[in-house]
Nucleic acid binder design. Structure first.
Length: 223
DNA sequence: TGCCAGGCCGGGT
DNA sequence: ACCCGGCATGGC
């Protein structure tokens, strides 16, 4: 498929999804720190479960890098239990907190003043921060212009024939970044809209929903 | 009831 | 370079 065709489809997806669902107001979270914590907690997990975990941290005044760094694994795991994988995620949050404290003394402005490429690389080196989490942190906590890819994104693009079955994360990310204007607000809204489309009508067992905003685009209903 | 949710890591081929 | 099992709660 030609480059301009791809660009047109990606733009069309966005317009159709935005017309259907409007602005998503992402990321839900009161501060960059809270967004970062949420990005770890939501790994393969429903957001409503994450909200309970964050509420627990908040009510104990634990949305603080130094406190997260110092507190015990067990206490943290217990508080984030509703988010699932609580032992894994407690370890990951403490890895992130330790890194932020040791490297930036908890100063996120200093952290986000790094270049996108260099910060991404350094986030990926933190245990528990993979590509989606790193990109979510960069875009939604730091305002960096980087596209976030998730399972929904891959499934939607696959079903509409824009990528092949085995396209990997970086390839899908590049598809957006190479075919859209580098605009933070656009990347922010686009990813959030893809999640909304995915939740409503692009689930694994629901190859074609009744009111899909992307129905006007060529569609292959294979999972 | 089983399936699914805004992944990632580590070990095995 | 892939492939897979493990991790866990809560909603529908």
């Amino acid at each position: 498929m030609g480059r301009s065709t791809t660009a047109r489809m990606l733009r069309g997806f966005y317009e159709a999804a935005y017309a259907a669902y409007g602005p998503r107001h992402w990321w839900p979270g009161d501060s960059p720190l809270e967004v970062m914590v949420g990005a770890v907690l939501t790994q393969n997990t429903n957001w409503t479960n994450v909200e309970r975990a964050i509420a627990n941290l908040k009510s104990n005044s634990l949305l603080d890098w130094h406190r997260l760094d110092r507190m015990s694994h067990g206490e943290l795991a217990d508080l984030i239990r509703p988010a699932g994988y609580f032992n894994v995620k407690a370890r990951r949050l403490k890895s992130l907190a330790a890194w932020v404290v040791e490297t930036f003394d908890g100063d996120l402005e200093a952290m986000f003043s790094l270049s996108t490429a260099s910060l991404r690389e350094r986030l990926l080196a933190v245990n528990g921060i993979g590509r989606e989490t790193a990109d979510s942190i960069l875009l939604y906590a730091g305002g960096h212009v980087t596209f976030v890819v998730d399972a929904y994104t891959a499934r939607i693009l696959r079903r509409h024939g824009l990528i092949d079955e085995q396209a990997d994360y970086e390839e899908i990310k590049a598809l957006f970044e190479d075919n859209l204007p580098a605009d933070e607000a656009l990347f922010n809204e686009y990813h959030a809209l893809l999640v909304e489309v995915g939740k409503r009508c692009c689930r694994p067992r629901n190859p074609r929903c009744a009111q899909c905003p992307l129905d006007e685009f060529p569609h292959d209903p294979t999972p």
